[in-house]
């Protein structure tokens, strides 16, 4: 015999279960962050951040990896941001829904779903081999640029769409051209949203391993130009952890990575909230 449960109790059970699901997701996040910071922070000192690694990373620090990560990600953003924002401007300001825009959007959606290892394969065969760039900051940065392009594009499009139509009408009524309206009116008000997208792209780039390990390489030296090979922090962490080189330094690198990601996400969120508040 089943115990009869009235609808009110059932409703309460459902609500409790839903709260639980949310708490489980939160708990997993908290666990991962806590484990990494707890074990990693003791290894993170100023000299860890500012020294070169010695003995394959068993001793010394991660300075070259910090430089490589910044270089590769910066290059990716420099390439992806104009393309992504350009696409967003074209889609919102210069055209209406046509077969072409559907193709553009479908392409971006698909590109967003392509796994990072495929970007790695493509970057290797196209940038490293075909274009002769070798394992370099350039190859890694361009590969990452392709990878973060959909993120930048989508966020920029949303931000630009959120700019009220009346702004544009007011601009046109003063005799401004379309491009003048875009640069003087639309982009400034959409800027926080666009920057959020770029920051999210940076976050993806910083944490990426599969796409950069076969394109930027895994040299332990500080890259001296965009043609030098480089090892990003995520790649360094992967090699330390997988080959069991140094637990302490693996944790330390992971802690730096996680703190960076936390900072990047917080910045993006803060900007987004401010942007939304301004839009009303």
């Amino acid at each position: 015999m089943t115990i009869p449960i009235d609808v009110e109790t059932k409703h309460r059970i459902v609500v409790v279960l839903l709260w639980l699901a949310a708490l489980v997701a939160l708990a997993v996040l908290a666990f991962i962050i806590a484990v990494v910071l707890w074990n990693g922070l003791p290894a993170v000192t100023l000299s860890f951040l500012l020294e070169s690694p010695r003995d394959m990373g068993r001793a010394g620090g991660i300075f070259p990896m910090v430089v490589s990560t910044v270089a590769v990600t910066l290059l990716a953003v420099i390439v992806a941001a104009p393309l992504g924002v350009g696409t967003a401007i074209y889609l919102t300001e210069y055209t209406s829904e046509t077969a072409l825009t559907r193709v553009i959007r479908f392409g971006a959606e698909c590109l967003a779903g392509v796994p990072s290892i495929i970007f790695g394969l493509f970057g290797f065969i196209f940038f490293v081999i075909q274009l002769g760039m070798g394992w370099s900051v350039l190859s890694g940065g361009l590969t990452l640029a392709v990878m973060i392009l959909p993120t930048v594009m989508r966020t920029a499009e949303e931000a630009i769409r959120a700019v009220p139509e009346s702004f544009r009408e007011a601009s046109f009524s003063t005799g401004a051209s379309r491009w003048q309206t875009v640069t003087q009116v639309v982009l400034p008000s959409a800027l926080p949203g666009i920057v959020t997208g770029v920051i999210l792209g940076v976050g993806r780039g910083v944490g990426e391993t599969a796409a950069v390990i076969f394109t930027a390489g895994s040299s332990l030296h500080i890259p001296t130009s965009i043609f030098s090979p480089a090892r990003t922090m995520a790649v360094h962490f992967y090699i330390l952890a997988r080959e069991g080189i140094s637990m302490r330094h693996a944790y330390g690198t992971a802690a730096v990575l996680v703190i960076l990601i936390l900072a990047i996400n917080t910045a993006a969120n803060w900007l987004m909230l401010r942007f939304q508040a301004k839009q009303g």
Binding site: A22, A25, L26, V28, L29, F31, I32, I33, V35, V36, S116, G203, R204, V206, G207, E208, T209, A210, A234, F237, Y238, A241, A250, A254, L257, V258, I261, L262, I264, N265, N269
Partner: peptide, 26 residues
């Protein structure tokens, strides 16, 4: 609660996959 949980879940997407693997091994 939603305003707290939503960015937290997005943060879960931001954590590098190597870190997931590492915590998994350990």
């Amino acid at each position: 609660a939603a305003n707290f949980l939503r960015p937290a879940i997005q943060l879960l997407a931001g954590i590098p996959s190597v870190v997931y693997g590492f915590v998994g091994i350990l």
